[in-house]
């Protein structure tokens, strides 16, 4: 198992009231498995993804990243684990506006002090972006931007891929293409994938669909 959530709860305090964003959630993701999380807005999808991605710590429960409990790690170590083990694909791509496509990937190499610089070009070629390497994000289409974001998530060869509504800014055809690429990467390279989505038309590309409602998981 590369990603395990064990009895995870997240409670927000709002004055005297308590709000349970996640209520005793457990989830295991196997290598090569692609899970979709759906649910109405405010149901705790984003909270769950943030906790799985070590961006947020749970109120109770354990998260095992590649067998390691993140609860015991320092903030710097957690950042390092995110860098090494997790690839994020954000809503609306969230690329850095002043970096060319090739540098969107290089910056991760720089942060991670990677020596292997050729992988970026391979990935961009693989996603059909070879002719776009010297363009800035504002010169790309929405689909291209999201493909760059996927390439960026993969540059470090992480074991876990987390996607936050990757199709939100795309039309259904482009959205499906992007999710197909994501699913293909996860299956062929044996990664564990979680995708939060509203888009029911891409659910058939996932191995499992989990519904979250009022902080509880239903399968």
């Amino acid at each position: 198992m590369t990603l395990v959530l064990e009895n995870v709860s997240k409670v927000y305090k709002d004055g005297p009231k308590e709000f349970k964003a996640l209520d005793n959630v457990s989830l295991e993701v196997k290598p090569g498995e692609f899970i979709a999380i759906i649910g109405p807005s405010g149901s705790g999808k984003s909270t769950m993804l943030s906790i799985a991605g070590a961006l947020l710590s749970p109120t109770s429960g354990r998260i095992l990243l590649d067998g390691e409990n993140t609860a015991n790690l320092s903030a710097n170590k957690i950042t390092q684990r995110r860098l090494e083990k997790i690839g994020f694909v954000f809503q609306a791509a969230n690329l850095i506006p002043y970096l060319k496509v090739k540098d969107q990937l290089s910056v991760i190499n720089v942060i991670a002090k990677n020596k292997n610089k050729t992988r970026g070009n391979e990935l961009l070629g693989h996603f059909g972006l070879a002719h776009r390497v010297n363009n800035y994000p504002n010169e790309l289409s929405g689909g291209e931007r999201q493909r760059v974001a996927i390439a960026r998530a993969l540059i470090n060869d992480p074991k876990i891929i987390l996607a936050d509504e990757p199709t939100a800014s795309l039309d259904s055809k482009r959205g499906r293409e992007v999710v197909e690429m994501l699913a293909d990467e996860i299956k062929t390279r044996g990664k564990s994938g979680i995708m939060v989505t509203h888009d029911e038309r891409v659910l058939d590309l996932c191995d499992r669909v989990v519904t979250i409602r009022d902080g509880r998981l239903e399968e």
């Binding site: 995110r82 090494e84 506006p97």
Partner: peptide
């Protein structure tokens, strides 16, 4: 702010 948030989420340390 957004970019810094993204970079931090991607694994950039604050010191970087």
């Amino acid at each position: 702010r957004d970019q810094f948030g993204v970079l931090k989420a991607l694994g950039a340390k604050t010191i970087y």
